[in-house]
Write a protein that binds this DNA or RNA. Structure first.
Lengths: 165, 165
DNA sequence: AATAATGGTTACAAAAGTATAACTATTAAC
DNA sequence: GTTAATAGTTATACTTTTGTAACCATTATT
């Protein structure tokens, strides 16, 4: 283990790195078997669910996805009435995407399916571990969400790419 | 909030659900811009990194990915010398996949890239929050990893799918 | 008013991921 | 020893995702 900048941060990163794959499985399973979504569309839906309405660019930033991809993802969601476009009267270039009632319901039902998968696995843990996990996961969530998803000002995935080549 | 089965578990699920998207961004960015990997190949590499050698089926189970997809993912990794096939002398049907030195190095360097992205964001947090996050993420990781990735006995994504139709 | 910058879309081509089914090789069961 | 089950691959057709570039429409700059 290196000491580098702040070993606290390095440890956190190490931990987050390990946690992520442990969370992916249930998602993948449900997306594949019990929803009409792809990873992409569900990510967009989830982001809107969490952050409210977002512009196309912002969605791209939150998900680190190029703008043209955002367009197609949103198009598919709109085709299913899960989200809708809203014009910004102040700046008519901007289009906000907002989740619809149907989108909320859909997202929640997928969430429920994923929960069922997770629950099966979590139930194998001891009461103590569940209790610790409950507190700890709460803390992780609350702190991570504090981080300003900064890159959403200077970030434009596709142009960022261009700069690099 | 419903009370349902065990509200502890429900809370945990709710938290994990929120955490996941917060972790995805840096991965996606690095995969796209600073590696030759796709989501799939990096997931396989990461799984092997964490669990040691696994059979093809086990990889599919851990990632909830159909067997033919595992084959193509592993093929690509092998082409780059990042993993290798090992025969099981006891059962010659089974092929174990093991990460190579080069694979380890590659994984670690990607990890480092992702860490840099994460670090930028984590540094915006207060010392207290970092300290809490450090402990909490450690706990989450340690407990989640305790869960036997059970479905790897009765789970065979492709046949599981068949049963459902 | 002309020019540049920004937010989004459109249009391809290429790579990646998925589902399904058929297939080989090996092991297990009867 | 024949049959069934398991582990993995191959084949194919299809959908998603990506990269790149050109393209509107609108706003900002001068």
């Amino acid at each position: 283990m290196k000491e580098e900048t702040g070993s606290n941060i390095d440890l956190i990163i190490e931990n987050l790195f390990s946690i992520k794959p442990l969370l992916s499985k249930d998602y993948t399973k449900v997306i594949r078997n019990k929803s009409n979504h792809t990873h992409g569309t569900l990510l967009v839906l989830g982001t809107l669910h969490n952050y409210g309405k977002l512009s196309m660019s912002e969605i791209g930033c939150y998900l680190a996805v190029p703008k043209p991809t955002v367009t197609t993802l949103v198009d598919r969601l709109i085709a299913d009435d899960l989200v809708e476009r809203l014009n910004d009267p102040a700046d008519r270039r901007i289009i906000y995407i907002q989740i619809t009632k149907k989108g909320m319901d859909d997202y929640n039902s997928i969430k429920k399916e994923i929960s069922l998968e997770m629950k099966e696995r979590l139930q194998l843990l001891s009461k103590e571990n569940l209790s610790i996990l409950s507190t700890a996961s709460q803390q992780v969530k609350e702190i991570l969400i504090l981080i300003p998803s900064d890159p959403c000002h200077p970030c434009n995935p596709s142009t960022e790419n261009l700069n690099k080549k």
